[in-house]
Design a protein around this nucleic acid. Sequence first.
DNA 1: ATAGTAAATATACAATGTTTATTAGGAAGT
DNA 2: ACTTCCTAATAAACATTGTATATTTACTAT
Lengths: 203, 203
Amino acid sequence: MGISERRERERQEMKTKILDTATKLIVEKGIEKTTIRSIATAIEYSPRTIYLYFKDKDEILYALSKKGFQLFVQQFEAAQSSANPMDRLRDIHERYLRFAFENPALYDLMFILNDPMNADPVKDGWEIGLKGHSILRSTVDACIEEGHFPGQDAATVAFTLWSYVHGMVALKLRNRMRMYPKEQIDQIILDSSEMMLGLLERM
Amino acid sequence: MGISERRERERQEMKTKILDTATKLIVEKGIEKTTIRSIATAIEYSPRTIYLYFKDKDEILYALSKKGFQLFVQQFEAAQSSANPMDRLRDIHERYLRFAFENPALYDLMFILNDPMNADPVKDGWEIGLKGHSILRSTVDACIEEGHFPGQDAATVAFTLWSYVHGMVALKLRNRMRMYPKEQIDQIILDSSEMMLGLLERM
DNA sequence: ATAGTAAATATACAATGTTTATTAGGAAGT
DNA sequence: ACTTCCTAATAAACATTGTATATTTACTAT
């Protein structure tokens, strides 16, 4: 039965096309200005057609967020080269910041926006989201095995570092660092990162 | 001329009424579901009337955020009792968390949402927002004078601590801590805070 | 009492997410 | 080959929202 296969293929192609177009629009004009209609116009279909492939807008955003997590995790997996776990932690930290600032719209979807998880609530619930965390977690584990963070729980250390770096990213992305001169912001983030990582290294 | 005075008074009363009602609705049903129309209905006026008192919805949100900062700063000013600056820093940290979790909608407006600062962009630009930061900053200064944070810049320390606590708040408020069991989340935040503050104390 | 001004409203518009009802074209059954 | 059925797609419409235009109402000053 080649027909239903072709249909399924076409269906997947359409979904991909919608998601790719949505990604492009979001990067270009932001999430709020990326409407169902604008996606429809871009792919030259009627707005209603979008709904034949995605339940609602949230489902599209959720799919994009998932793609974001794939890219995100890829970055981290590339950070596993060094033999020294503390260096790997540093690498993860830097890659996290780079990912966030190079893909602000994706980061927004993944970590800042009110989560569009209503769609697809628990099912396939968050493995990919978990994976990023588990990479961080196991790197912290490795550090502890080498004698770092004495007396600390790995989960606590991992969460502390994550909160910290997310905080910097979120404050910058949401323009809440107005008290610092614009041209100094990146340097402040670097200085702070240096302080934090140094602190952890010397623990 | 009592008449124009009375008018001005009535005008202020109306603005207050609108803001109070908006606050109530936001706390009850969230920011998104608090519409101009719902505010109008609640105060028993037509929607258009709101616009006679506020330029647009952003101006209302901005006003609410400003009120939030007043409350916020009040909390911090109450944290200046202890003679030991490191204890004051601890106190600020705790009060920050308490403020955020007791006033999630306000915190959202103040620190997470895309800022509604389009209204009233720089004029009266952010003194009140700055004030919270300056309290933190001067507490860090006092710590440094007592020999804490050797070799560190006060601005860097203040920003690091702020990013960290904001990160925790933002991750929890936006439901991004799904990898932790719900009932453990508060404890994780406490443990992490203990680790972070202990780390800073022992620097 | 009349004219003018300020407050409030009814109505309407545009953008957006989404739904209902309809059409067109290919697939399947006889 | 003809008919039936289904699926993809659409047009049109609806509801909600922020906001603007035009009008009415009520108070103030002359």
